[in-house]
């Protein structure tokens, strides 16, 4: 038996997962961040999206409340059906709220896209292995939840399809980016969620005013 356990051996057999460089693949998948209203989960995705939006008013980043990201995106998508909502989160955050995929799958709002940056580890707490590096496949959860459009981006050849899915879907899209366990983009950003709420909400209301 593999010393890391049966699950680890199974995951290692699944080449080429966990190979892509997240500092390249996440920007390639998201493209112009200002085209979306973005909610991120905590930790790696938080810093990454703060960097990609340059702490923009179209970005609400979670510094805690692990498991909140997808459902915040759903609430936002249902409230503003004319706006494209993007949730960016990690495998650890999403593993804590797999039920929210089931809830989203019952509704499938077309203006909601979810990008899960799966590095198979809890990067923020010292890169302990997560369930996804032990054989768990979150894309299959999303499929089983009834989310209409899903894909895994594990090689550079998969990127154009993933990028298209995040932008052009007529139902909720779920894209799993399988990346190497190393830190992503980072920029100095405030963890003040109350200030961020006011900034995001004001920008959203200003952008939603009838012309």
């Amino acid at each position: 038996m593999n010393p890391k356990g049966k699950g680890a051996a199974a995951a290692e057999a699944l080449a080429p997962r966990f190979k892509l460089d997240r500092t390249k693949v996440v920007p390639a998948l998201v493209g112009r961040a200002e085209d979306f209203w973005i909610v991120s989960g905590l930790a790696g995705a938080f810093w990454e999206m703060a960097a990609m939006t340059n702490n923009g008013a179209n970005y609400y980043g979670l510094g805690g409340a692990m498991g909140a990201a997808c459902m915040m995106g759903l609430g936002l998508a249902l409230t503003r059906p004319e706006k494209k909502i993007l949730v960016v989160t990690g495998d650890g955050e999403l593993l804590m709220s797999l039920g929210s995929l089931a809830t989203i799958g019952t509704i499938n709002p077309p203006n909601l896209s979810i990008l899960c940056v799966d590095n198979g580890h809890y990067g923020e707490t010292g890169y302990q292995r997560s369930h996804t590096s032990l054989g768990v496949d979150i894309e299959k959860f999303a499929q089983g939840a009834g989310i209409k459009m899903t894909c895994t981006v594990a090689s550079e050849a998969d990127i154009p399809n993933g990028a298209r899915m995040l932008r052009e879907g007529n139902a909720t899209a779920f894209v799993l980016a399988s990346v190497h366990p190393a830190d992503g983009l980072k920029v100095k950003a405030s963890l003040d969620g109350a200030a961020c709420r006011l900034r995001f909400r004001d920008a959203m209301l200003a952008a939603s005013k009838p012309q």
Binding site: G75, T79, K83, G99, S208
Partner: peptide
């Protein structure tokens, strides 16, 4: 929108997301 949840904490996050869009849940 009538939204059945799998667990109640999903609803807490939904209420917050709705507020970010200027709505009420």
């Amino acid at each position: 929108h009538s939204i059945g949840l799998t667990s109640e904490e999903e609803g807490v996050a939904l209420v917050a997301g709705t507020d970010l869009g200027g709505g009420r849940a």
